[in-house]
């Protein structure tokens, strides 16, 4: 196993608000790391920091061994990072095919290579092919999520960050999405999956990181003991005692 993305002591937030504090993270080739934590814990903010959308106030990010901390967001996709934001943020007024072609942009392909890359995406999701000329926003929620993920895959990423891909999808579709994520892992991608639902997340994960109040409070392989600890973080503690409890669970590293 080799680390594709390494975050070291990352703090980030918005303007005067530091949301994520001093988080370490290491994403390995061919593994799924899930990032858990209740909302407001800083999961999305961390992903935004990793992908360059938010600037880091401390720490560094290395992608394939290269320091990318100071790089602007638009250069990271070319270096192999793809971030699929939550809420199916695709280009709703563009057609399905146009969305996929935009996804090919970071890979710097020729026109012909773009066609074959798009064709490969259609092979993975035949339903998209039949709707290739429809406006992306007119498709169902699950199909939109497929577009979002395919779009990211078209850029030939090494790391894929997925922010709550199962949100708002029917349970059967969620199962499909999780299956797809496993496939991608098996193809060698390093996947960071942001989830709120402990269940889905722990089942699919090779490794689990839990954030609470912006700090990484757990970092371990999935296990029943882990579920215990996560539940503690989610509901078990009285307000105002985060720090103590966080240390209690410790960092098994």
């Amino acid at each position: 196993m080799s680390a594709v993305l390494v975050a070291d002591g990352v703090s980030t937030g918005y303007r005067d608000l530091t949301v994520v504090r001093d988080v370490d993270l290491s994403l390995q080739r061919g593994t799924i790391t899930t990032l858990l934590g209740r909302n407001g814990a800083g999961k999305t903010t961390l992903a935004r920091g990793l992908s360059g959308l938010n600037t880091l106030s401390t720490g560094s990010v290395a992608l394939l061994g290269e320091d990318v901390t100071k790089l602007p967001a638009h250069l990271l996709p070319k270096r192999g990072l793809a971030f699929v934001q939550e809420g199916k943020r695709i280009f709703r007024e563009l057609s399905v095919e146009e969305n996929l072609r935009i996804g090919c942009h970071p890979a710097g392909l020729t026109r012909r290579e773009v066609e074959s890359r798009v064709a490969a995406a259609y092979d993975r999701f035949p339903i998209l092919k039949s709707k290739r000329h429809h406006a992306a926003g007119s498709l169902s929620g699950g199909q939109q999520q497929m577009i979002g993920i395919s779009q990211a895959l078209c850029g030939d990423p090494k790391v894929l960050i997925l922010d709550e891909p199962s949100t708002g999808l029917a349970p059967s579709i969620v199962a499909q999405v999780l299956e797809l994520i496993r496939e991608l892992r098996d193809e060698g991608l390093a996947v960071l999956l942001i989830e709120q639902s402990v269940d889905a997340a722990v089942d699919v994960a090779d490794h689990v990181v839990v954030l609470d109040v912006g700090r990484s409070v757990l970092d371990a392989p999935p296990s029943d003991a882990l579920r215990h600890a996560i539940r503690d973080i989610y509901v078990g503690r009285p307000v105002g005692a985060t720090d103590g409890a966080g240390k209690e669970t410790g960092k098994p590293r």
Binding site: P77, R92, L94, I102
Partner: peptide, 24 residues
């Protein structure tokens, strides 16, 4: 054209375009 497509994408969702490597 590619740049036309990227332009349209960029004006629809600036941030999402950045994440697809569009140099706005």
């Amino acid at each position: 054209t590619v740049s036309g497509l990227l332009s349209r994408a960029q004006t629809m969702d600036y941030e999402a375009a950045l994440l697809r490597g569009v140099n706005a």
